[in-house]
Design a binder for these strands. Structure first.
Lengths: 110, 110
DNA sequence: TTAATTAATTGCAATATTACGATTAATATT
DNA sequence: AATATTAATCGTAATATTGCAATTAATTAA
C-alpha cells in the first residue's frame, strides 16, 4: 500500500520519522550543510552549489521549510534561505532522545 | 527520475541520508525503541507489539540489519534480534556531527 | 511599459517504498 | 516421518518520491 499507518504509532515515533525522512536525501543534507557553512544566508546559489536543476532544489527547499527547519526571505527577485535556529534546536532534542537511548550491557544477547 | 544521484554528493552526505532514511518510517522507529526497551532481545513479538503483518515486519528488520544497526540470532525456530551496539554508536557519531553543527549568531539573516 | 532575473508551480515520467497474501525454508515436536 | 511453529522470500498492488522541462509569478532594471 506504500502508506505509513501513522495512527498506529505514537506521536513521538511519527515525529522522529518525519524529521528523519527529510534528512533521508543527500541533496537536503547538502543544502542544510551549505546553509550552516555560508552563514551569510546565500539562496539561489544552492542550485549552482549542488548539481540539481532549479525546480528540484526548490522542491527540496519547500520540504525543509514545511518542516520548519529553514526560513525563506524575499530579497528583490531572489530568496534568502537560512536555518531556523529555534526549530533546529527543538528537532535536535527529539532526535537526540531517540539516538541516545541507553545501551546497557544487557542488550547484547546475540 | 526518483533516483538519488549519489555520485554528486560526498560520502558523508550519502551516509547521513542512508541512516536517516532507515529512521524515516515510524515502524522502524518503533522496532528500535522496543529493542532498546526489551533488553532480553525478544523477536517475533515485534509482530504483536507493532500492528503490522509478519512479512512487513520482516522486511523492516531486513533493512535495519542491512545497515548494521541490529543483529539477528537463530534460536530454534525463532530469531532473536537486538541492537548492534558498536554500529549504533558509530552511527550516532555521524548523525550527531550533522545535527550539532554550529548555530552561530551570524546564521539569522531572515 | 518592456525586458531581464529569479524562484515557485505544474505536469509528468521514472523509480522507490510500503504492505501483505501466498509460499517457502528451517527447525522443533510428536 | 508427519506435523507444527516461526520467519524469510516472492509477487504484486497501492502509494510516495525524485527530477526536470515548461510555465508562471514576482520583482527589478532599462
Amino acid at each position: 500500500m506504500g502508506l505509513a499507518k501513522t495512527e498506529m504509532f505514537t506521536n513521538e515515533q511519527n515525529e522522529i520519522s518525519l524529521f528523519a525522512k527529510v534528512f533521508g536525501h543527500p541533496a537536503r543534507v547538502a543544502i542544510l550543510q551549505h546553509l550552516f557553512k555560508i552563514n551569510s544566508c546565500v539562496c539561489g546559489d544552492l542550485v549552482n552549489e549542488i548539481g540539481l536543476a532549479q525546480p528540484t532544489i526548490s522542491q527540496h527547499l519547500k520540504e525543509l521549510k514545511h518542516l520548519g527547519l529553514i526560513k525563506g526571505n524575499l530579497e528583490g527577485t531572489s530568496v534568502c534561505y537560512c536555518i531556523h535556529k529555534e526549530n533546529w534546536t527543538a528537532m535536535k532534542t527529539v532526535m537526540n532522545e531517540f539516538l541516545n537511548q541507553d545501551l546497557t550491557d544487557k542488550l547484547d544477547c546475540c
